[in-house]
Design a protein around this nucleic acid. Structure first.
Lengths: 226, 226
DNA sequence: TCAATATTAAATGTATACAATATGTATACT
DNA sequence: AGTATACATATTGTATACATTTAATATTGA
């Protein structure tokens, strides 16, 4: 397994919460697991730290980056601005080959939703939005955008409930948004893509609110007053 | 010299253009220069790559990141949005100790301008704006902001002419902006800081335009027609 | 002479051994 | 008993030797 594959594998395990926020990433165990020496493994961990997946503390090793309330708040403040900017630039700069690739990813995403595979949904959704970042082709926005996507995936996983029928409905909506986004990018319609991204964002935000502020459990007032 | 110092030193040399864009960063030479083995030096280079100072090509080493026309364009597109957002957040979140520190940095900056030391001006200006990024305290915006600051310093250096009287005038203006920014942050005035940042940005932008589109050299039409 | 291939030198990439640091445990002391 | 200190263990950080890849040069053939 080469370094890039190890990088991708670790990132995937962090995004899917298989490695939960705060988990210690022990160099010896990982290098044994991936059958590679500690030197290149350390470089992988430091690479992931640069992307925000991992936090490194001096002389105390690497940890999967945390997801505090503060982080959640910053995420809600920041995502709409960056997502809109990336979308606008993507509509302006997307190359035909990238649009083709995006269509293919979208079909994989559609298949994942139809099959109900939660891990695949997260993965192909991630690919879709990461590709939009590539289309935007702006080295200054990319690091922030990528970091937002990482936490977006983790937050979504946290609040996703595969058995809730409300989820299927939202997935269908998200899928439709993606289709429309591809159309807007093809026609280079900046305003359309920004509108779609705002709509898509609100879907995601509402999903999270839906679970942060759920309906209280049923209870009998009479029983309490007895 | 410890790893952090080496990191800082290299970053400073890149910012001040002592190490020009595209310069190859040879591991052996650098490790000899800093009296450290290649292993930790490689980690430093990869750290700088994560920040955007350095580009690493597989099996071909590290280079000071380039400054193409494309980069310049992306810089102009992106900086106003991120700078404004950071400024707004700084006004909202700055801690008293940080405001104190900013005042101290500003005095160093003032001294640098009065003494006319170009390198010190770049350095303390960088510190001022980097601290504003700390005040904003937003992990999603920070990586983009830091990358913008790096290239902002390099672009400014490229177009700075210490002997031009126009420069001194602009320096005085920049200094005044900084003073006003500290005031706006102290009073938590978001609107004021955004206005100041836009003004400050325009100063910087005009400076660059002033040298990208200079007045043509004098010539005699008559001579051409002879 | 030019092109293609083989060889060689120099660089990066990896493994491993050793050093420094941090944590946990045991022991001594108040 | 509780705290502090000393020691032991485990983990990270660094140096160095070796492997691999790249690039430059030399050599051979047409």
């Amino acid at each position: 397994m080469d370094k890039q594959s190890i990088y991708d594998d670790l990132k995937k395990r962090i995004l899917t919460l298989e490695l939960e926020p705060g988990t210690a990433l022990d160099e010896a165990s990982l290098s044994k697991h991936y059958q590679i020496s500690r030197t290149p493994l350390r470089e992988v961990l430091r690479g992931l730290a640069g992307e925000g997946c991992v936090e490194i503390v001096n002389n105390r090793g690497a940890y999967v980056s945390s997801m505090s309330h503060k982080v959640l708040r910053d995420f809600f403040i920041t995502a709409p601005m960056i997502y809109s900017a990336i979308g606008r630039l993507a509509a302006q700069n997307a190359k035909p080959a990238q649009i083709q690739e995006m269509s293919e990813i979208q079909e994989k995403f559609r298949a994942a939703i139809e099959s109900g595979s939660s891990a695949d949904m997260v993965y192909w959704n991630q690919c879709f939005h990461a590709l939009m970042g590539e289309m935007a082709d702006n080295p200054y926005l990319k690091p922030s955008y990528d970091r937002l996507l990482i936490d977006h995936a983790r937050i979504s996983q946290t609040f996703y409930r595969p058995r809730d029928p409300e989820m299927s409905k939202r997935n269908i909506d998200a899928l439709a948004h993606h289709d429309q986004m591809i159309g807007a990018i093809e026609s280079g319609d900046s305003q359309a893509i920004v509108d779609l991204i705002v709509e898509h964002w609100e879907l995601s935000r509402d999903l999270i609110e839906y679970f942060v502020k759920p309906d209280p459990l049923a209870f009998e007032m009479a029983a309490v007053n007895e």
